[in-house]
Amino acid sequence: CDMIGYLREIQDDLARNGAQDPGYDIPYSTVHVGTIRGGTVLNIVPDTAEFMFEIRNLANDDPIAIMARLERHRDVYLADIRTRFPAADITIDIANSYPSLSTDTSGTAVGIIQSLTGTDHTIKVAFGTEGGLFASQLGVPTVVCGPGSMNQGHRPDEYVEVSQLDACDAMLDGLLARLVSGF
């Protein structure tokens, strides 16, 4: 619980003092605890507890520095608690890590997708994709696009309309035609 509380402190600090990008619905990096498990019944002290959290960082916030901050807190906390409970331990396992994506909306890649979709509308979404890997590690200009709307996604009743799939097919057909013709 103390570690979860500290993650909340990190989140509050990122909201106040971290990088800001008004292009996102939430304009700062986020730290989120999604699951908590531990114990079996109320009257027995759990021998283990586990929680899963994620960091969704803006490109200008360093997730390694955020993790280092959490690890320093853990080490200080463990040094104190082990005076009473020598076997106490807290491990942090990183299950996944990828860089954030920040694409220049005036770049060529965005222009190509806009010409294929017939819109100049762009948005930034606060979810992770392989796009950050392509852009930062391979230097490939990257745009994430697809059918549907994030207003409909990542919800219990998420869906994609047939008309949105048809529009995506048309965009992909246009992209294929441009690739075949050499742009």
Rank of each mutant, 00 (worst) to 15 (best):
N96M: 11
P156R: 14
Q137C: 07
S97E: 10
G107L: 01
G38L: 01
I92A: 01
F51K: 06
H121Y: 05
I66V: 11
G111Q: 10
Y28M: 00
Q164P: 05
L70Q: 04
I64L: 04
D25W: 00
I66A: 04
V76M: 01
L133C: 05
T91C: 01
I66S: 02
I44F: 02
Y6C: 14
V144T: 12
H154E: 04
L42R: 14
I94H: 00
M67I: 00
G38T: 09
A170T: 15
D120E: 11
V41N: 08
S115P: 03
N151V: 04
T91M: 02
V76Q: 09
R69S: 02
G182L: 08
Q137V: 06
I4S: 13
D13C: 07
L70V: 03
V41A: 15
S115Q: 13
F85T: 14
C1F: 15
T117Y: 04
V31D: 03
Q137A: 08
V125I: 15
L42Q: 07
A15M: 12
P99F: 00
I81T: 05
N57I: 01
A65I: 00
F85E: 09
D61E: 06
V162S: 13
E50M: 01
R72L: 03
G111L: 01
R84A: 14
M67S: 03
R16V: 03
A167N: 14
Y77F: 15
E71M: 02
L172D: 02
Q20M: 07
S115Y: 02
G146T: 11
Q137R: 15
D173T: 13
L78W: 03
I26L: 13
I123M: 10
G118K: 12
H121T: 14
L70W: 01
V76S: 11
P147H: 09
G111S: 08
P46R: 11
F127L: 13
T108C: 00
V125F: 00
S97T: 10
S106R: 03
A88S: 11
Y98D: 01
A126F: 08
N57D: 05
Q20P: 02
A87H: 12
R72H: 08
L165G: 12
V41I: 12
G182I: 08
R69N: 09
V31G: 03
Q137W: 05
D166A: 15
D104K: 02
G5H: 14
C168S: 13
P22E: 11
G23F: 05
M67V: 02
D75S: 08
G148C: 07
Y28V: 10
A65V: 00
S97I: 07
L116M: 12
P22F: 02
E130V: 09
N151T: 08
A109M: 07
M67C: 06
K124W: 06
T122A: 09
I26M: 05
P141G: 10
T117E: 03
L78A: 07
G118I: 09
V33S: 07
L176A: 15
I90K: 04
T48E: 12
L133N: 13
G139N: 10
T83Q: 14
D47P: 02
G128H: 11
Y98Q: 06
L176Q: 07
V162T: 15
F183Q: 13
I112T: 10
D157L: 10
L70P: 00
Y28G: 01
